[in-house]
Simulated assay, not measured.
Amino acid sequence: MSTNDLGPLAITRRSASEPIRDNGETVGRLGDFWSWACSDLANNTMRGVLAEYLVATALGAATGTRTEWDTVDIRTPEKWRVEVKSTAYLQSWAQSQLSEVSFSIKPAAGWDTQTGTTSADVLRRSDVYVFCLLHHQDKQTLDPLDLGQWTFYVLPTRVLDERCPGQKTIRLSSLDRLGPLKTDFTGLQKAVAACAEGPR
């Protein structure tokens, strides 16, 4: 086997109706797997993926597939590089109190999905950060698919680099002091465009 055979897979969008097969016999559907694996939208991992999808949808960048290990979360048609972070007051598990709201802003080494190599440079590679807060605080009515339960905070990456160069996490109160554009889903594209294109 040559190394040419070990390059990145070409990932195409799949359909929920695709069969899971055993010796040619259908034993399930891909949609059944998705329902089994991805229904808990309040856990940290799946909520984060959902947040990326919501931002990608708002930016017209959700037509392909998600790249798990890319150096940024979203690449838009305008060539904006967008990093998405999410958090919430409520979790799937039993809580004695609401979770503290903070976001990761840690600079990181870059992984190149095409070459399978890591860059030694530790930095933030995006143009814009979108901080997604699932702000709803009533556990009985929590629904991450209800976009009215989300608030988005948009900030040029250079503001983080200037004001929080080596910082790993940021609380909501500290983020507010940096002057992000605060918006609902409808205003997200405009806010990202303002941060990506204009000086702040």
Rank of each mutant, 00 (worst) to 15 (best):
G31D: 09
R66I: 01
E68R: 13
W36L: 12
L90I: 11
G64V: 08
G60N: 06
W36M: 12
T63H: 14
A56C: 10
E83Q: 11
E83H: 09
M46L: 14
D70M: 05
W34T: 02
A61V: 01
R75E: 13
A42M: 14
L41M: 06
K79E: 12
W93A: 08
D40I: 00
K85G: 04
L30F: 15
L30H: 09
D32G: 15
A51P: 07
A94M: 12
Y89V: 03
S92M: 05
A61C: 03
V84I: 10
T76F: 01
G31Y: 04
L41A: 12
Y89C: 00
D73F: 06
A88H: 01
V72L: 11
P77C: 04
S39K: 14
C38K: 15
G28T: 02
V84S: 03
M46H: 12
G31V: 07
V55D: 07
D70Y: 10
T87V: 07
L59S: 08
T76H: 10
D40E: 13
T45P: 00
F33N: 12
R47I: 01
L59H: 10
E52R: 09
D32Y: 07
D73W: 07
S86Q: 04
A58R: 09
D73H: 05
R81P: 01
C38H: 08
S39C: 11
I74Q: 09
G64W: 08
E52H: 04
A61H: 09
E78L: 11
W80M: 11
P77D: 07
L90M: 03
A58Y: 01
